[in-house]
Amino acid sequence: MASALLALFLLSFVVGRYGVPLGQVVRILLSGVLPLEQTWTDNMAIAVLNVRLPRILLACLVGCGLSAAGTGYQTVFQNPMAAPDILGASSGACFGAALAILTGQSAVMITVFAFLASLLSVALVYLVGNHTRGNRVVNLLLAGIMVGSLFSACTSYTKLVADPTNQLPQITYWLMGSLSGTRMGTVKFAAVCMAVGLVPLLLLRWRMNLLTLSPDEARAMGVHTDRLRLAVILSSTVLTAAAVSVSGMIGWVGLVIPHLSRRIVGSDCRRLMPMACLFGAAFLLLVDNMARCLTATEIPIGILTAFVGAPFFIYLMVRGGDRS
């Protein structure tokens, strides 16, 4: 999968309305570290380094982050329908971005508003879930539905009062999800935030297998399940918040990719988590290439992931039902 991702990474520079040969792409990328003679035009360098490189990197980061977050949530909640937006992180990010657009903030502040609102929504979910009697996991799921619905209503009200000429189209387009216009500053912000969430998941992935045991059995093996569950939820939330804040709503990646990865390498998180990261990055990069090239007008990537992800998930459900 790593080899497939690398090949797709290089081929993505060739795809586009302005053609750049693969050999020139490699030379342009290597020219930053090696003293190569220039055999490419300035327009080729601009297309590769300023336009396509940031977008390709961000597609890989967002796909990796959403897939890792989905894997973490499905493991914690032991629920195959768990997705990165299960605790309201995506709904919170949407409201934060809509509020930033409504108040006339810059593109950087839109990302910051979305990121902070996403963290706030999950903090509310965790606060409500911990102060409710009963099963803690079920309480978190119910609180996530409630808080997510609340933030979705706030987003709808923001769209209602937005200027229908400028602000409303911008909010609507952001909610569809897109990677167009990506700059390296956005990539650096996403990379730092996602590293904060992804590194703990990779380090704890062997312990995550113990979440399928009872608390007493896990504690006998030296693992405190409540602390582990909190660490996984926080890490997955940071990943989701960072991904949604820079790309908008991109659904199905965090739901479908963990299922596909599980069919390839099994349910052992030691293999499942790295596989989901690589598979998610490759999948979103492939879909983004389709979004750029299928039509004359770029299709929002959130629409394409739904078109691809929903039928494929139905296929997985049908195949699973046949096996049972």
Rank of each mutant, 00 (worst) to 15 (best):
N79E: 12
L116V: 15
S121C: 15
V128A: 12
A89G: 05
A107F: 12
Y73R: 09
G129D: 07
T103S: 14
A114T: 02
L140V: 08
G104D: 07
A100G: 08
M81V: 13
L124C: 14
F151H: 02
A123R: 00
I171C: 09
A162S: 14
L168W: 09
L120Y: 06
A117R: 01
V147Y: 00
A82L: 11
V108D: 14
G104A: 14
Q105R: 13
G104S: 11
H131G: 03
N79T: 12
D163R: 10
S91Q: 14
V108P: 00
I110M: 11
L160Y: 15
Q78P: 03
L175N: 12
A123Q: 02
F115D: 00
T158M: 11
G72C: 13
L142Q: 10
G92Q: 03
L87M: 13
V122W: 01
N139P: 06
Y73K: 09
L127M: 13
S121E: 02
L140C: 07
S106R: 09
V122N: 02
I86M: 15
G72N: 11
F151C: 01
G92F: 02
Q74D: 06
G92N: 05
M176V: 05
L99K: 01
S152K: 09
G72A: 15
N79F: 13
L102K: 08
A98M: 09
L120Q: 05
V76D: 02
A162F: 04
A93P: 00
N139Q: 09
S156I: 07
G72K: 05
A143T: 10
L120F: 14
S149A: 15
V128W: 09
P169L: 13
A98D: 06
L120S: 12
L168D: 02
A107L: 14
V128E: 02
G88H: 08
A83H: 12
A98Y: 04
Y73I: 07
C94Q: 10
T103W: 13
A123C: 11
P164D: 11
T155P: 07
T103R: 06
V161G: 08
A82N: 06
L87Y: 05
A100E: 04
G148A: 10
S106Q: 09
A100T: 04
S149N: 13
V137K: 14
A153S: 14
T111G: 13
F113C: 13
I171D: 03
V128I: 15
V122R: 02
A162Q: 05
A162I: 05
V112I: 15
L142T: 07
S106L: 10
L168E: 03
G104C: 10
Q74K: 08
A100K: 00
N79W: 11
M109P: 05
A153M: 05
S118D: 01
Q74I: 08
Q78C: 08
H131K: 14
V125H: 04
T172F: 03
R136W: 12
G96E: 00
M81R: 10
Q78M: 12
R133C: 04
G148H: 09
